[in-house]
């Protein structure tokens, strides 16, 4: 899932300081699962902003709504009636949701309440870790299911490097060396010979290259 974390409340409050009424929109997708932009967080943010503004004797009216997903136009359409009389829309979705709302309502001031951080998963309740670098050309079959692109600080394909010490990466004693993990896993699988195959330089053209990427499934396109 996409992991996002809410911006400091002061930063969000500053964005809406000139508004009298705002629409606060949560997302029931990834940001609900990573506990930063779901129904609960949407209500809390709205409440914080209202209290803050009441203390400043400049009351703020809030309307809240949670979209099933903000990255699908059909779910954003549900906001059509709600955006009419608000001065701004605060989105608690990832950067995709903010842009989708901004595109649908060109005359509205759409603001991000979150910083979108990475693609990852939870390692325990309340802790999330990055696991995919979205390089567009998966090599997990070569590395025992451990991604060196995002989990190795240097993203090297033929590791480990000289900075690997006692299973940890030189950048931090809290960061496991991805290549140590890969070696250990391949050893337990009895596939160490696979690591003797040298990997050529990766073709990065499938990654962040040439502007935004697009995925197309011709067979499901309607019309």
């Amino acid at each position: 899932m996409i992991i996002a974390q809410q911006k400091p409340i002061q930063e969000i409050a500053e964005m809406v300081k000139d508004c009298r009424k705002v629409l606060v929109v949560g997302c029931a997708g990834c940001v609900t699962v990573c506990l930063s932009g779901g129904e609960k967080e949407t209500e809390i943010l709205a409440s914080e902003l209202r209290i803050m503004r009441q203390l400043q004797e400049n009351p703020l009216e809030t309307v809240t709504f949670v979209c099933t997903r903000q990255c699908d136009p059909e779910y954003i359409a549900m906001l059509d009636n709600l955006v009419e009389d608000v001065d701004a829309v605060i989105s608690l979705a990832c950067g995709v949701g903010v842009q989708y709302i901004a595109e649908r309502y060109p005359s509205k001031w759409v603001l991000p309440a979150q910083n979108t951080n990475f693609i990852g998963g939870s390692i325990e309740h309340g802790v999330w870790e990055e696991r995919c670098g979205m390089c567009g050309n998966c090599i997990l079959h070569l590395t025992g299911g451990i991604c060196p692109i995002i989990r190795c600080s240097k993203s090297i394909l033929n590791g480990p490097c000289g900075g690997s010490q006692y299973g940890k990466c030189e950048v931090s004693k809290d960061t496991p060396c991805a290549w140590q993990l890969i070696y250990d896993r391949m050893q337990s699988l009895g596939k160490l010979d696979k690591l003797l195959e040298l990997q050529p330089p990766k073709d990065w053209s499938t990654s962040r290259d040439g502007g935004p990427r697009k995925a197309v499934r011709e067979d499901v396109i309607i019309g």
């Binding site: 400091p8 409340i9 002061q10 409050a13 809390i44 209290i51 803050m52 203390l55």
Partner: peptide, 8 residues
Amino acid sequence: QMLDEIGF
């Protein structure tokens, strides 16, 4: 902590 941040 949240209340302190919003000045309450």
